[in-house]
Design a protein around this nucleic acid. Structure first.
Lengths: 337, 337
DNA sequence: ATGAAAGCGCTAACAC
DNA sequence: GTGTTAGCGCTTTCAT
């Protein structure tokens, strides 16, 4: 059929292509008469013209594309985040290129190179370790970057969850159930949320009049179920705690397996709290009490921050911390007498 | 820093830009001398040149972009599929634009329009209903499309799982455990896998010398846990079956909840088999016996089929059916005496 | 085998 | 307010 170009629209409206272009991009300088604008718009609509993004990109040096990097697409936490990002971006004419580092920090560089080759105008990065070379370089170059749930040493706006609040609620909830020895399965070190969550756990215990013991913390090497199962096993075998705050829901998923392997039942023998409220959390047996984060909103806010920086690269856009809220389900119960 | 163009490479190598371009694209007609090719390649490597995809696209009328449509990003089945698709595409210089219809067939059209605006060269579609207008139109226009786990009335190559094999194994497994009344929670009608799975269930029962009863099938409105829970409840309340083949793992997840709500324990009171072996299947309690499908391979094969059609639009590429295999875990056990 | 020149679709800069 | 011109980066004729 031969694709429509702006020349076709211009011809149909009886104007020059440049005029047609201006008429269709109202924000540009050099205003166009109402009549012309009208005629061009009608012609475009009738013909079903949509501007070729490639031609436009070449001229404007923009791609209408944003790179999104997540650490693990298989972790149910991220799909809702992606949905939020895409929804907002699409509403503003941007499309997201998505990649997962699969929990391998080394892959970030290569993936970012692919994105840069495609002229992504900005990046939403949910995979940055606290010290990440590839991401740091990006930020240093002044490319618009928004971090999700991660902080780096480099300065880039970020959207995080205010874990402290929800974790405080979680610990209080456990304390009110009579638990005095509440363990924590921390995520991998080198990630900012890991530290924040551990700190919040510590603070929560203190606020409840309890003293966090070093032996109540075990570090899971990754935010995965299998790492969680191992770490939980280690913690259980020390035989000290009656309740566990997992570093996230995937780690909590691993805990269920560790419980079962030791013949412990939840919540009768051990109480368990996760973090994230991932899509399947309510479907686990027992359903998981967890610190809920609005994942879609997390992504949506990140996208909006990025759009603000895209519109004005000099804009100082601040960080956002979304509130978290404890969702009590069936994995927590009174301490055993 | 000012981005590198092919002119920079040409200058560094002491040749004309056109020559440099040819040297870097070895497959083109008009071969270039080995020496020149070498010099240009070295210059490009030293400068770190990567061709601008936008300029290239404008000239070649290609975008290096493929649209991928899935019905539900939140369903753990699809992320591995996407990973397989992306991996293969990236290896061939293509990037995937991903969108989810969120189980709303009506959204497919709008999303495909976004993709078309971006000049996607081909599509991997995992969301087609058996009768899907938007997708049908695409195929009719001769745009390269590969379907994943779906068949439409229109003719497009597809990659599916050979559910019959694994489902046959599943039914035999249950029969060998002594089950004679094996129910099925079918997915939404209007989707090809739904029919295929129901047919395979029926055939499996017959092969085991059993007669499938109409009352043993309940249809879940969607492939989701909550739809599964409702459907499972209906089936259980009829009080006929001792084992259940769920339409997929998400429906099976809902079954766990339905069991718990009725005080039934699995596998002592009811045996349960899922389909897909999604990432969390082994972490459910009890771990889910399920018909495994290599999801990543599903995506990878789809991508390869698409690449074949992209390379030669006239190529008749056939359908692919990947084998499935029963994975026996702890959700199935002997029938109660 | 290589250089010259043209042009993909669009819009910014410059006329008028 | 609108037409003219030029050029984004690349590849592909067409010469030589």
């Amino acid at each position: 059929m031969g694709r429509l170009t702006i020349k076709d629209v211009a011809r149909a409206a009886g104007v020059h292509p440049a005029t047609a272009s201006r008429a269709l991009n109202p924000l540009l300088p050099g205003r166009i008469s109402a009549g012309t604008t009208e005629r061009v718009a009608r012609a475009a609509a009738e013909l079903g013209y949509v501007a070729d993004p490639v031609g436009r990109s070449l001229r404007t040096q923009r791609s209408g594309t944003v790179g999104v990097l997540v650490p693990d697409l298989l972790n149910p936490f991220y799909p809702p985040v992606l949905r939020g990002v895409q929804e907002v971006l699409r509403g503003h004419g941007f499309e997201a290129l998505i990649a997962s580092t699969d929990n391998d920090p080394g892959r970030a560089g290569a993936l970012l190179d692919v994105f840069r080759g495609r002229r992504c105008e900005g990046y939403v990065i949910a995979s940055a370790s606290r010290r990440d070379d590839a991401v740091g370089r990006l930020i240093a170059e002044g490319v618009p970057v928004v971090l999700v749930n991660r902080l780096t040493e480099a300065a880039a706006p970020s959207v995080t969850s205010d874990d402290a609040r929800g974790i405080g609620q979680a610990v209080r909830h456990l304390a009110e159930l009579g638990h005095t020895r509440i363990g924590h399965l921390a995520g991998p070190s080198g990630i900012s949320v890991t530290r924040a969550r551990e700190a919040a756990w510590r603070a929560g215990l203190r606020a409840a009049g309890l003293t966090p013991e070093r032996s109540w913390v075990v570090r899971a090497g990754q935010y995965t179920a299998s790492a969680g199962e191992r770490a939980c096993g280690t913690l259980l075998d020390r035989g000290e705690v009656t309740a566990i705050l997992a570093g996230n829901d995937m780690i909590a998923v691993g805990c269920y397996a560790a419980f079962a392997a030791r013949g412990l039942s939840c919540p009768e023998d051990v109480s368990l709290v996760g973090i994230n409220n991932m899509p399947l959390a309510e479907w686990l047996r027992p359903s998981l009490t967890t610190v809920a984060i609005d994942q879609e909103e997390l992504g949506a806010r990140a996208a909006r921050l990025l759009l603000a920086r895209l519109a004005d690269p000099a804009a100082r856009v601040g960080d956002v911390a979304l509130p978290t809220e404890l969702v009590v389900r069936r994995s927590t119960g009174p301490v055993r007498p």
